[in-house]
Design a protein around this nucleic acid. Structure first.
Lengths: 210, 210
DNA sequence: GTCTATATGGAGATAGAC
DNA sequence: GTCTATCTCCATATAGAC
């Protein structure tokens, strides 16, 4: 369970709306009125669920973290680390059009809030930290443990960089090319205990929506 | 020459100040009063040089473009494409501490302004487009022309991703590790006409300050 | 050209009825 | 719990003296 202390239909609607609107417009340019309107709620009602604007960020990161944990955890548990990492890359492939328009929802929020004073930056970075840590675990299961941190970093850096460049160039092909390359790279890594069959495990198809 | 139509001491001071303050705080959170103060100029005077806030972004990107063209052009002209690309990577190594604190000045501005309506996003993306285009030219001089776009994309994506992740984690080691890897990768690329000497050309040392 | 003073609008946050 | 109305502050931009 997350740090979310209260839960309700209305609150969930607000968090969903906030997540989407902030992804599209950025945190600074998004007003509470924007969020309230997107969630079909009066402006004043927002303050019943959130003490202040920055508290909504916590709810958004909680939500995103939970989604990532679930989706990636499911694939990895069912099909192993290589398939899990492939599913992570596939997330970017699936979302390439949206990310080319608005950037990676996780990375763009990190970049915008990191320079803010206070703890908002730390908060926004939590999903990114999770991706790094989780990837490191998977690479550790896949090959030599001492190489896992470097491989995980390489992967997450490439995914984040691809989203940023694709967004700047308004070209989803940037993400397509990078994720193709990363899948090939992942497939080329030697598993811990090589089996006879050389073909990599079937790629789990998981839909987007981080 | 850039698109800069007017030039003066005062104007330059304002652009320098704006470039630094916006890098540290982000565009949205930076007020014209912040910029005026950093440049030791009265708030009202800013409007003598710039019609509106977003016009300052054009001046900043002009400035950054000119710097990149000059620095990278010099190295490439003197020592060739491989040294030039090495110098590009070295830029990130040199600025790793600042970038870990505030992100890449180019990439973070792209990410913040891409989602703005209007042409500000396009404007902010110009330095990034230049880096991609210039890298592609260098890779084209270095090896098979058909591989140049992919290699250039890989390089710029990694540099941008490294800055974003380093900033989110507040850890300049992320950039150090990625630039080390990229230098090794660059050195491993086979030159167009292989010489006897296997050692890569000496890395040109160029200081930071994009 | 440079300044101070100020108009204007917008956004976060609150008050209080229902 | 949800709403409307409003307070308050602050940032962009302008006016106009020097």
């Amino acid at each position: 369970m997350s740090r979310q202390t209260e839960s309700s239909e209305r609150r969930d609607a607000l968090v969903r709306a906030a997540s989407q609107v902030i992804h599209r417009q950025g945190y600074a340019r998004t007003t509470l009125a924007d969020i309230a309107q997107a969630a079909d709620v009066a402006l004043g009602s927002v303050y019943y669920y959130f003490k202040a604007k920055d508290e909504i960020v916590v709810a958004i990161t909680d939500r995103r973290l939970a989604h990532l944990r679930q989706k990636l955890g499911d694939v990895a548990a069912a099909s192993g680390p290589q398939a899990g990492l492939g599913a992570l890359i596939q997330l970017w492939t699936s979302d390439k059009e949206v990310d080319a328009l608005y950037g990676c929802p996780i990375g763009s929020l990190c970049y915008e809030l990191a320079r803010q004073r206070g703890t908002l930056g730390e908060e926004a970075a939590r999903p990114l930290r999770f991706l790094l840590q989780w990837s490191e675990e998977q690479f550790g299961l896949l090959g030599p443990a001492d190489q896992a941190p470097a491989l995980a970093l390489q992967l997450v850096v490439a995914l984040q960089g691809a989203s940023l460049v694709a967004n700047a160039l308004e070209d989803s092909e940037v993400i397509a090319r990078e994720t193709d390359r990363l899948q090939a790279w992942l497939g080329s890594l030697v598993p811990k205990q090589p089996r006879r069959a050389r073909r990599p495990p079937a790629q789990a198809q998981i839909s987007g929506g981080r």
